[in-house]
Write a protein that binds this DNA or RNA. Structure first.
Length: 1063
RNA sequence: GCUCGAGUGGUGGAAUUGGUAGACACGUUGGACUUAAAAUCCAAUGGCCAUUAUGGCCGUGCGGGUUCAAGUCCCGCCUCGAGUACCA
């Protein structure tokens, strides 16, 4: 919270010569001011640190001189520093956003000082949902909102003094940019994945293979239902069939995908938009529905995405997240024959060694064979079960894991070895989307199978030697010795697995297999504000618009909601058909005139795709596009990509671990395969900056029954209100137990306050209802939940003493004020909670105010000073005065002249001054290389404190010092640099060379410890021998005092470090 | 449940390869300057004990261990945070 402390003068550049102020609740004047207070000053100009003026001047200078423009050719070595580009939301930047940008900016500036040609671009991920939702509500075109938001972002970024090369700005929603997103999509469409060469290849090559030999020998990533065909079959197929088959191989393909469909809203919902099976907004029913959607065959790259992680310097948690997400598991596919039919069921298992323990099989309810194999007697039960599970969303299914449900199909499979009948069940613990959607259930070795068997009374044969399975399954494969398993008896897990796979292969009923959890990525969204697909449909088959006619620009629509027939918003466009003869977008009406849709006799006008691409489309190639952002002929030139190659340092949040950071690696690998980029990992090193957390404020509002439902704007219950409740409200006031336990982490003071408030209400009630007996009860927690609850309020409306700005609240949230029975005059109980900083949590802190009050350099230093970059940390402005006064001290060092005017001395600096400077150079250099920016800030403070104490004003010290500080506080550094007489930007200066000779010491303050505990220190020459040190220490009187006459057992002397005496 | 990360003063956090725990800052207290305040400067500030000085004891989530020496290494726990979840 802002306090009255610190440099809070409205005009920093002028210093008060006379001033008086009115304090809060001034005892004499009796004036109560609001928090910011009113101050009246008379000012005179002086030479103090005028950060506002300085920062504005240099920001202007950098912009006018394009100081940070990077060239694609240079004698210097290149270095590419990248930030994750922001989504320009309407809320603007909060103090959490710049954290990573400040770190990367420091690094980029440092690398420039170190003589690198640095590429440090910035842009906007400007397609996205918030702008679209705003458009739905207001009718405002998302492009306009987006443009406005970008302006705000740009202003906010500029005021922080980042060294971005803005000439390379990209925006994903700019047709000039998304032209190339569409272009990559076409390349993906025209490619397939060849497992033999282990890379993506042209679809034309695949066609050539099909023409020659069919697909039997082709090892490719393809749909599971791809039929096997010969060359003769291929030539006999119709064009449409061929296209259908090719679609099963393309890296981007159309497929029926199961989605959460909300008919009332006419859109697909993400899992977290559904609560208890109904939509979060509106409470409409949601069903699981198959929809034809574009998908990306990212699974083809599963292994390479895994292997690539070893080649890049990314944080371990992030690599772990991707590894888990890809979820490689090694096992076997086993094919079970179904008795009395010709059908087979393949299952995937990681424990083929336990096959003799398989006492049943379980299929996912959605499994396609379920209908075929279910017997007449079981039809009803199975049908009912499937219907019941279909109603439950995936999320619900996951939520009640403990509930065991299933149904018997009546069918039996044949065990591959024993040939015994294995009953086939269905159960929703088996997921349709993983493996084959079917499992062989081995209850003795898998807890889920065990629970299922117990629940349905299925036998649980034990196939492990000497293990008790009467209570639970035994899943420790390392401890397994197989028994009751024919040829596997006595073998351990490894041997048995090998053997059983060999036997299965002999039978032709299985093989070793590696399975991945990773699923193909759905690439369609039923949204307006995204990249249109460069796709039109002829006879239901997708056709690509040829590359030279890109971009296919997003059409205008009347409204941004789905159409009445449930089509995506683009279905509202009147001009959204493709004239394949003239290669342009034309009116939809012309499609109807083309006669038979798709027929050659028509006019060649076809419907365009109505879905748009997801958010991660544009962010999957932006880092490469920055290298050559204005190229209209190609996504980037060969020279540019070969010069910059890859990102050397990428800074961004870990929340993108399994989204953007995985998809973009996939795109890069694909682009590598088709020869567009020289490396298949685009970011050599990645750092995750920790989140800056916000402190949310809650008001614990008491919500007694009689406080509800005021019809007018009254904030206080009347006698009538209270009496109207008397019939069912017997006077029991439910005192929240929570006041007294720690659920809401209330302080004693808050508890007392809330408790007092309750008492007051009871008194009020009793005054009005004297016949009622009122008693407090602690028993009705759920009543409390309903009656007293924390209500979020904007943090800016609560001061540091937990006082509410009541007028502010009234304006801020009308409903909040009106709906609740609240006490008058600040008798609120305010609670606080640290959580993610977010507009929806009303806990954002805007950097603008801090910039205004302390300046960008202070904010930059402070954000770094908060703690290690990678660590999550709550925002708290309390300490910012520290870094701000550091900057003032720094400024003073260079202003030793009369009236604090600029003055530095040409005189030779002292040895101490050299030492202070070179210590700092060394430490800061190490810190930046290690991304330990917080410790650099304290190093600067130490240095400036030392130089101030030495009264050092030597140019020879202060000039290099400005350079060392400039990556962190670039504005003040530029100003000092120019005061030192330089005409060019400090960013062109070389980082000072560290010279160790200034740090050479002749003696050392040795810590003398006894049994490892330091007792005193002794100053001894560093060139003293071990023996002499020992002698000197032993001769010291204080050593003898410590020993008290005992002779030491041992004396450890580590020259230059420590002396330890063991007594 | 699984995976990863973290536990150090009133607070944020320092502590290279094991070698003076608490750097640097915030806050607090006292002082200087001032009619008064702000700003600035100085001093103290892990806890407990002692105080005439030199001091003493305990301390990095808990319990063990290795070592001359452990915040740091090893073993076993506890707590918190993040991610992920019926993945066969």
């Amino acid at each position: 919270m802002n306090t009255m402390k610190g440099n809070s003068f409205p005009f920093s550049s002028i210093k008060p010569i006379f001033a008086w102020s009115v304090q809060y609740d001034h005892p004499e004047i009796g004036v109560k001011n609001d928090r910011l207070g009113d101050r009246f000053f008379l000012y005179k100009n002086d030479m103090s640190y005028k950060f506002r003026e300085i920062e504005a001047r240099w920001q202007k200078f950098w912009a006018e001189n394009q100081t940070f423009k990077a060239e694609n050719t240079s004698d210097k070595e290149k270095f590419y520093v990248l930030d994750m580009f922001p989504y320009p939301s309407g809320a603007g930047l909060h103090v959490g956003h710049p954290l990573g940008y400040i770190a990367s900016d420091i690094y980029a500036r440092y690398k420039r000082h170190k003589g690198f040609n640095v590429l440090h671009p910035q842009g906007y991920d400007s397609f996205g949902l918030p702008a679209e939702q705003y458009a739905i509500q207001t009718g405002q075109h998302p492009a306009i909102t987006t443009e406005e938001n970008i302006k705000t972002y740009r202003r906010q970024l500029d005021q922080l003094g980042f060294s971005f090369d803005w000439s390379r700005e990209v925006r994903t929603s700019d047709p000039k940019y998304y032209k190339w997103t569409q272009w990559v999509f076409i390349q993906l469409f025209n490619s397939w994945y060849n497992y033999t060469s282990d890379k993506a290849e042209a679809i034309a090559d695949l066609i050539a293979i099909f023409e020659k030999q069919g697909n039997a020998e082709v090892q490719a990533a393809c749909d599971e239902d791809t039929p096997i065909f010969t060359a003769a079959d291929w030539s006999a197929y119709t064009e449409k069939t061929r296209q259908e088959i090719l679609l099963k191989y393309r890296l981007t393909y159309l497929a029926d995908t199961e989605v959460n469909w909300c008919p009332a809203l006419g859109t697909v919902l993400a899992n977290d938009e559904i609560v208890n099976g109904v939509s979060e907004r509106g409470g409409h029913p949601v069903i699981r529905k198959k929809m034809t959607q574009w998908s990306m065959r990212i699974t083809a790259y599963a292994q390479r995405l895994l292997d690539g992680l070893d080649k890049i310097d990314w944080p371990q948690p992030l690599r772990d997240a991707q590894t888990n997400w890809i979820g490689r598991s090694v096992g076997a596919e086993v094919i079970f024959k179904i008795k009395e039919t010709s059908e087979t069921i393949p299952v995937f298992t990681t424990r083929p060694d336990t096959i003799f323990g398989a006492s049943f099989m379980t299929l996912a309810p959605e499994h396609e064979l379920v209908e075929k194999i279910t017997t007449e007697e079981q039809k009803e039960e199975v049908g009912a079960y499937i219907e019941a599970t279909a109603k439950r969303s995936e999320r619900d299914r996951m939520a009640d894991v403990n509930q065991i449900t299933g149904a018997f199909t009546g069918a039996y499979a044949e065990h591959p070895f024993t040939k015994e009948a294995v009953p086939i069940w269905i159960g929703d613990y088996v997921l349709a989307g993983y493996g084959t959607g079917a499992v062989m259930s081995v209850p003795c070795g898998d807890q889920r199978d065990y629970d299922f068997a117990k629940h349905f009374n299925i036998p649980i044969p034990n196939i492990f030697e000497g293990v008790d399975i009467s209570k639970e399954a035994f899943a420790d494969k390392e401890q397994t010795v197989i028994a009751n398993s024919d040829f596997l008896n006595g073998l351990n897990y490894k041997e048995a697995t090998q053997k059983v796979i060999a036997e299965l292969e002999k039978l032709g009923q299985g093989k070793g297999k590696i399975n991945y959890r990773l699923r193909d990525a759905v690439f369609s969204r039923q949204r307006y504000w995204g990249e249109p697909f460069p796709v039109y449909y002829v006879d239901g088959m997708p056709q690509m618009i040829s590359e030279e006619h890109l971009p296919l620009v997003l059409p205008e629509v009347e409204k941004y909601l789905p159409t009445e027939t449930g089509e995506p918003p683009l279905g509202n466009a009147t001009h959204w058909a493709w004239d394949s003869v003239n290669n342009k977008v034309v009116s939809n009406e012309l499609v109807a005139l083309s006669g038979v849709e798709g027929s050659d006799k028509g006019n060649g006008i076809y419907p365009l795709e109505l879905n748009t691409m997801p958010g991660w489309a544009g962010s999957s190639q932006y880092f490469n596009r920055y290298m050559d952002p204005h190229n209209e002929e190609a996504i980037f030139s060969e020279e540019a990509i070969n010069y910059w190659r890859q990102v050397d340092l990428y800074i961004g949040g870990i929340e993108h671990a399994t989204g953007h950071l995985l998809y973009s690696r996939f795109w890069q690998k694909f682009m590598f395969d088709i020869g567009l980029v020289p490396v298949d990992e685009y970011a050599k090193k990645l750092i995750n900056q920790g989140m800056i957390l916000g402190t949310s404020a809650f008001v614990y509002s008491l919500y007694l029954p009689f406080g509800l439902n005021f019809k007018d704007n009254r904030s206080k219950a009347t006698r009538e209100d209270l009496e109207s409740y008397s019939s069912f409200f017997d006077g029991t006031v439910f005192i929240p137990k929570s006041i007294y336990d720690d659920r809401y982490d209330l302080s004693n003071d808050q508890k007392a306050k809330l408790s007092h408030f309750v008492d007051e209400l009871i008194n009020e009630y009793q005054r009005l209802n004297p016949n009622h007996i009122v008693h407090k009860t602690f028993d009705f927690l759920d009543q409390f939940e309903r009656n007293v609850h924390p209500v979020r309020v904007d943090v800016s409306l609560v001061n540091s003493s937990d006082e509410l700005n009541i007028d502010g609240i009234k304006n801020w949230h009308k409903d909040f004020w009106q709906a609740k029975f609240m006490p008058e005059n600040n008798k609120y109980v305010v609670g606080r909670e640290i959580e993610k900083m977010s507009k929806s949590k009303y806990n954002v802190v805007n950097p603008d105010a801090i910039c205004k009050e302390y300046g960008a350099d202070s904010l930059r230093l402070y954000e770094m000073f908060l703690g290690p970059l990678e660590q999550a940390k709550p925002w708290n402005t309390a300490g910012i005065t520290g870094v701000h006064s550091f900057l003032k001290k720094l400024w003073k060092l260079y202003h030793s002249g009369p009236d604090a005017s600029f003055e530095v001395s040409e005189a030779k600096p002292s040895a101490e001054a050299y030492k202070s400077l070179h210590k700092t150079i060394k430490k800061v250099e190490e810190d930046i290389e290690n991304f330990s920016f917080n410790t650099s800030v304290s190093t600067f403070m130490i240095c400036v404190n030392e130089l101030s104490a030495q009264k050092c004003n030597a140019k020879e010290i202060l000039e290099p010092l400005a350079i060392v500080i400039s990556p962190y506080a670039p504005h003040v550094a530029e100003e000092l640099w120019s005061l030192l007489g330089h005409k060019t930007s400090i960013s062109t200066a070389s980082f000072p060379e560290f010279n160790s000779q200034f740090l050479v010491e002749s003696s050392k303050e040795y810590p003398i410890s006894f049994n490892g505990k330091m007792r005193f220190t002794m100053e001894l020459p560093l060139d003293m021998s071990k023996e002499d040190i020992e002698a000197a220490v032993m001769a010291n009187q204080r050593t003898q005092e410590q020993l008290q006459g005992r002779s030491p057992k041992k004396v450890i002397v580590v020259p230059g470090k420590i002396v330890n005496i063991v007594g």
